[in-house]
Write a protein that binds this DNA or RNA. Structure first.
Lengths: 183, 183, 183, 183
DNA sequence: TATGAATGAGGATTCATTCAT
DNA sequence: AATGAATGAATCCTCATTCAT
């Protein structure tokens, strides 16, 4: 890929992310092109259609997150810390706008599955180490974290995050983010 | 207002609610008119524009909720019970589709303020009675409940609701929905 | 259907026929709307899409022709005369522009089959009465007439028509359009 | 012109012919470039625009046919045979796709005129030798032959060709492709 | 010179809104 | 007053053509 094409692709992704965030996923292709300082045709050369653009952005974000969680999961940090790290990483990403993207899209399905898999292992590990409530199914916990991080303006220390993370703690560890039961 | 006009207005609101829920707020005016068994012209006689229709539905829902909370707040039930009652009532309403409606609309602002006010009093009462964590601002709690209640498919006993409500409990009362500190 | 709607539909069909004839089937919907003195939206209310419009025009033309041939076939005219009548009728219609319309479209398939059927019977009758060459398959003759009739500017007495009709005559009757063998 | 330039030009013409035949003249420049294994830029270096490319192909085909007819006309074959030879040659060429090219284009006008001229002489010769109907104008006959050879899938022995050639025969020679009146 | 990336006008289609019946 | 036909701006997307690499 030529240097200018790569640069423009990057410009498009950035502009699209910005526009989608501002408009809640309903910005037009013309708007995005303008925000990128390019013509619409260039958009379509890089992304065959609107859905493809959304899918690519989703794929990018989700892949990045999956890689970060995998890296953290490979350390010997407490699993609870790994989960907190995921929330910290995720709230930095433009996830709110991605709720309308279906994970059926093959471009998205792979990374989504990868993230789901590693998160699932971390959740089970956290329940095993006694830092996470044991009375919730794995999928319930990951869905819950999904809701925490997929809000406009989400932060890892905002009220919802604080309360949910507290509510996920194993009994007796509430309000003690760093503690692991028995320690 | 004549009897048939009131009837048509009712038909429209019902149809619009149904259509908006089915399509995630993106149903067309034509769809709504058809669902109501009326012509588009009749729609526009009752509601000046699409935003007005959404605002009206929002107004209806929010007013109903405000009235319910006010009624519950007028009893001597524990304030925590009043909050739980609000969640139970709210998840029955089509709130998920209303996230895109801004509360700036004058039609919505009144009822929204009314709901916010009564919820604020209940939250403070709950903190005073020791059933609700005291380390959160009133607005943080109401925002939090808003998120719990404004999801597609929300229920008052689904994982998010369970965990958030648990996280909102005063320390020592977690996992005990009915208890009030000191009892 | 309301009076003005019927009138507009008629205007659209006329305008579309004219535009398609002028541009060889490549006129835009905007062009057609303008030619009809209407907005594009009105076009789309009457015809769901471009293909639908072409299909409708085809259907109209073909149905009209089928009815004319059926009427002629019901008389006791010589079958050769019925065929000549078909050519006379058909060259008056805007058939040239319809070559790109596939008869797969269900709207077109019915009338096309109807026309094909009645023409087939007339061809066989003509061969039986000895006015039409017997060494050609029915479908070959109808295809041939199709080509005669589906040209821009076709007339029933232009060189191609004259020569082809002459070539279709039974041996011995060439150059005698009115004669039937043995008479 | 350099050797590789000539080679590319040849590649383009071949690819364009193939693509236009496959798509009925509506293939895109990108498609053609791809089929030629070249970039679009190279296409435009050789041909200033789409119409120019079509004109060139037309020019090629028509020139080739003109040369073939001229060669046959230079022999002492019966003129009827020369006409049949033209039909045989022409149906092998991709003429159907060229109907949309106007002969006004200066690139096409020359060869078209050349072909028309030689065909005209052959037609007159055939009428003189008594093998071709004498009651048709020269231009009528050449137009007629044009229609015969400019169809998708035309063959020199398909029903239309058979019937038209038969219809063009002088009276008394019908159904005898090889005969010349008086022989 | 060859390449293919960029451009933007043009075309099909949708839908909120207006207006004639 | 109710209806639904008409309107046209807005949106997605294509493709002939230009231009930077």
């Amino acid at each position: 890929m030529r240097a200018d094409a790569r640069r423009n692709r990057e410009l498009i992704v950035r502009a699209a992310t910005r526009v989608f965030m501002d408009t809640g996923c309903s910005g037009s292709m013309e708007d995005i092109a303008q925000a990128a300082g390019l013509g619409v045709g260039t958009l379509y050369r890089h992304f065959p259609d609107r859905a493809g653009l959304l899918a690519l952005i989703t794929c990018d974000v989700v892949s990045r997150l999956a890689a970060q969680v995998e890296a953290a999961a490979a350390t010997d940090l407490p699993r609870w810390e790994v989960l907190l790290g995921y929330v910290r990483d995720a709230v930095r990403e433009p996830l709110a706008m991605l709720k309308s993207v279906s994970t059926d899209d093959p471009v998205v399905a792979g990374p989504a599955e990868r993230l789901h898999a590693v998160l699932g292992r971390v959740v089970e590990g956290a329940q095993a180490e006694g830092s996470l409530r044991a009375d919730l199914e794995t999928a319930a916990v990951t869905d819950l974290l999904g809701l925490v991080v997929c809000r406009p303006g989400a932060r890892d220390d905002d009220p919802l995050a604080t309360v949910v993370l507290d509510g996920l703690r194993a009994p007796g560890l509430e309000n003690r983010p760093d503690a692991i039961r028995g320690q």
